[in-house]
């Protein structure tokens, strides 16, 4: 199991479209993926869960991945955050 703090850098935060991209990516992996912010812990493969995290710009989300492909999953998820979910800002 690995976990890492990742900062939300895109301007709009984890809104519906960004959440959709995260969930689509997370669903490609066999590992269990959970996101935690404050007291709330959610399944990274559930779009509603991700939206309900209410992660706005500059908040830090702890990502925990557990499973055979956890390393690759972490790299790709981190890249998605870093690339602002392919948004313009």
């Amino acid at each position: 199991m690995i976990n890492k703090d990742i900062t939300v850098v895109n301007k709009l935060g984890l809104h519906a479209r960004a959440a959709a991209k995260l969930v689509a990516l997370a669903s490609n992996f066999a590992s269990e993926i959970t996101l935690q912010k404050g007291g709330r812990k959610i399944n990274g493969k559930s779009i509603m869960g991700v939206m309900m995290l209410a992660a706005s710009q500059h908040t830090v989300v702890n990502i925990e991945i557990n499973g055979e492909d956890e390393q690759q999953a972490m790299i790709e998820i981190e890249n998605l955050f870093k690339n602002l979910f392919d948004e313009d800002e």
Binding site: A16, R17, S46
Partner: peptide, 19 residues
Amino acid sequence: KDVATFIDSHLLMAKDSML
């Protein structure tokens, strides 16, 4: 591209266990 992602997100919601 935004149009497709909008609909993708709605599709994911419809399939999400919370709904």
